[in-house]
Design a protein around this nucleic acid. Structure first.
Lengths: 356, 356
DNA sequence: GTGAAAGCGCTAACAC
DNA sequence: GTGTTAGCGCTTTCAC
C-alpha cells in the first residue's frame, strides 16, 4: 500500500493535515491561502503522495467505484460497451469493477450484493431481464443504477440502448423491397426487452408492409447460436414456407446460417438472413452478415455518463430512456426474392432431401 | 450504502462489537462461544447485515480487490482470460477491477497507480511488454503481481501462458509434412514475449525440419489485422517465394488472408496460412483458420489462482512460469504444397497481374 | 486561513 | 470467552 500519508505531506509543508487535505481537494482549495496550496502540492509531489482512496471513501461514503454487470464478457456484444464505459469512468477518476454473472440470476444477486458491500457508487447493468427482481431491488434502494442494452418492465431506471423499432423496421423494409413476402422472425427470449421489442417491431413492420404476419414469429430460448440453430431447424423441419429470416441478434442469425448449411440450403441464394447488433466479426463471415449496426461503445459511454450525472446530482435525476440511432448494414446474406423460384417448394424439397 | 453496521448487530445480539466481529470472522470464530456465534449470526441475518468492505480494508490493509490490466478488451483474446480470472476471484471473495489501457503505456501507468491508491491486493497484467518499466516498478514494490499471456524479460514475476515453442513447432511440422518448403513467418512485435518466442520457436522448428530459414521472418508492427495485411502485402509485392505463411497470431493471419484475397490469391489453394490462439470466431471464417488452440480461460483461472496464492502466502512465493499445453487446430487454411505447382512462379505471376 | 478534534466502520492488541 | 481501547487515513465541523 501507500507508504506516504497525508499527514507526512502536511508535516513536510509545515501545516496541519486538515489544511493539507483542503489544499489538495479541488472543491476546498479556494478556502486555503494560494501560497499554502503551492507548498502543500509541492510537498505532495516530492513525497510521491498518493491519496488512500479507501480511507477517503470510508469518510465520505463515496468510493469512486462503479460496477458493471454483464452476463458474459465472452459474448462479443459486451466488450465494446465495457470499453466505452471504462473510458468515460476512468477519465472522471472512477474505477470500473466488472462482474460477469455467467447469465445466472443467483450469481448476479450475490455479486451485486458483494458490490454494495464494497460501497460502489453505482451500477451499470447489462443483464436486465424484463421482469427482474434484482434490478427492482436496486431501483428500490435508490443506489444510482443505469440499464444498458436491455431495460426492464418497470422503466423507473435510466436506460441507454439502441432504437430497436427502427432497426427492425429497416430489416423488414429491406427484405420487402427485395420482394420477400414470407418473412419469419427468429425472436429473442420473451424475458428480455430486446427480445420483446424487436418482436413487436417486427410485427408492426410486417403489417406496415401489408404482409401476412400470422405465425411468422418463433421464439428462441436464448440469444445463442445453439438456440438460433434449433429454431431454424424446427422451422425447416416443419417446412414453413419462407424466403427470409430476420433474427433478433447476430448469434441467432449465425446459428440459423449453420442450420441452413447443414440442410444444404444456401444463403442468400435459397434464403435471406439478417442479424442484429453487428458484433465484431460478422462482417467477415462468408457471406458477410446483413445486420443492424448498434453503437455499442457509445452505449457504454452514455450509460457511464448518465450514471456519473446521477451520482453527481442525486436529487435531480430522472429515468431518461436514451435510444441511440442504428444503422442498417447491407451485406451479403440478403438477396432478391425472385432469385428463389418457388420458395415454399424449395424449402419443402430440401426437407425431403434432408430427411429422406 | 449499508444502513446496518456491525455495532447494530452486536447490540441486538447483546454482545460487544468486537465479539460480533470475531463471531462473524471465520478465522476467529473458534475463539468465541458457539452459542454466542449463533446469536450473532442470527442477529446479522435478521438485520440484513452486510459488512463494510471499505472499513475492513482500511483496518486490515487488505481490500479483497484485484486489478486486471488488459490492453484492449475488444480484442477477442482477452474476454476468456477475464472470465476465467473473474470466476476464480469471485469464488474466493475477491472483486475484479478491469482496466483497459487502450494499448497505451501512459494510460497503463496512470491506471495502475490509481489502482494502487485504491489499495488493490494484487495485479494480473496482460499487457506486459518485453522491456516494461511499469511491470518492473510493480515487481519492485513487491505488490503481488502475476503476468498472463505475455511475460517480460526480467522473469521475476510469476507468469501463466501457453507453450509457444510447442505451438509453433506444431504449425511448422504440419506444414512441412504437407510438403511446404518455403515457409514464412509473420512475426509479432519484438517488444512482446509472444512475438519473440514464437519467432525463436519458428526458427528452431524450421531448422529442425532441415528447411532454409534465411529471410523467412517478417516482423509486424503490432498484433493487428492491419499489420498482418501490410506485412503480407509487402511480402507479395517483393514476390518472395513462399507457399505457406505462419502468423504469430490469429489477427495477423486474418489480415494476411485479406491481403491474399485482395491480390486474387486463394487460401489454401495458392498459399497456406496458420494463425495462433484460436480466438472465438476464427473457426467460422471461410475457410476456417488452421491455428493453435490456447486454453485462454484456464490461463485466466491459473493466473488468478497464482495471485491468490501469493496474496495468501506473501513470503513463500516464487516466480513460477507456467506454460500451458496447446493444441493444434487443423482446419481449412492449410493444404498440401504439391497442389501449388510452382509456388515461386505463381506468386510472381500474381504480382504481375496485381501490379500490371 | 488554519488548527483541533471527532469519527467513518471495522479489527487487533490487550485486559479481565 | 468477552469487553476495552486504540487506530487504519482521511475529511469535516467547529473554533480561533
Amino acid at each position: 500500500m501507500n507508504r506516504v500519508r497525508l499527514s507526512d505531506v502536511a508535516k513536510k509543508a509545515g501545516v496541519h493535515t486538515a489544511t493539507a487535505s483542503r489544499a489538495l481537494n479541488p472543491a476546498a482549495r479556494h478556502e486555503v491561502n494560494a501560497d499554502t496550496v503551492r507548498r502543500v502540492e509541492q510537498a505532495a509531489r516530492r513525497l510521491g503522495y498518493v491519496p488512500n482512496t479507501l480511507a477517503r471513501g470510508l469518510r465520505t461514503s463515496r468510493s469512486f467505484v462503479v460496477a458493471l454487470v454483464v452476463p458474459d464478457i465472452t459474448n462479443a456484444l459486451f466488450p465494446p460497451i465495457v470499453r466505452g464505459a471504462e473510458r468515460v469512468l476512468a477519465r472522471a477518476g472512477y474505477t470500473l469493477v466488472l462482474t460477469d454473472t455467467n447469465n445466472d440470476p443467483d450469481t448476479e444477486r450475490s455479486q451485486i450484493s458483494a458490490m454494495r458491500a464494497r460501497g460502489v457508487d453505482g451500477f451499470i447493468v447489462a443483464t436486465a431481464r424484463w421482469v427482474d427482481p434484482v434490478v427492482s431491488d436496486l431501483a428500490e434502494t435508490g443506489i444510482p443504477t443505469v440499464l444498458v442494452n436491455r431495460r426492464d418492465a418497470a422503466g423507473t431506471l435510466p436506460y441507454v440502448g439502441g432504437d430497436d423499432r427502427r432497426g427492425m423496421q429497416l430489416c423488414v423494409e429491406h427484405l420487402a423491397d427485395l420482394g420477400h413476402i414470407a418473412i419469419m422472425h427468429l425472436a429473442g427470449p420473451n424475458n428480455t426487452s430486446t427480445g420483446r421489442e424487436r418482436t413487436a417491431a417486427f410485427r408492426t413492420a410486417i403489417r406496415g408492409q401489408g404482409l401476412p404476419s400470422a405465425g411468422s414469429v418463433v421464439e428462441c430460448s436464448a440469444f445463442t447460436e445453439e438456440a438460433g440453430a434449433a429454431a431454424a431447424h424446427a422451422l425447416l423441419e416443419k417446412a414453413v414456407p419462407c424466403t427470409a429470416l430476420v433474427a433478433a441478434n447476430d448469434l441467432l442469425a449465425i446459428g440459423a446460417l449453420e442450420a441452413l448449411a447443414e440442410r444444404g440450403l444456401r444463403c442468400p441464394d435459397d434464403i435471406s438472413v439478417t442479424g442484429y447488433n453487428d458484433i465484431s466479426f460478422v462482417s467477415r463471415l462468408t457471406p458477410p452478415l446483413t445486420t443492424v449496426g448498434v453503437p455499442l461503445r457509445l452505449m457504454g459511454e452514455l450509460a457511464a455518463g448518465a450514471l456519473l450525472d446521477w451520482i453527481a446530482n442525486p436529487n435531480s435525476h430522472t429515468a431518461v430512456q436514451t435510444l441511440l440511432p442504428v444503422e442498417f448494414m447491407l451485406r451479403g446474406t440478403t438477396a432478391a426474392a425472385d432469385q428463389v423460384k418457388t420458395p415454399a417448394r424449395r424449402v419443402r424439397d430440401n426437407r425431403e432431401r434432408a430427411v429422406g
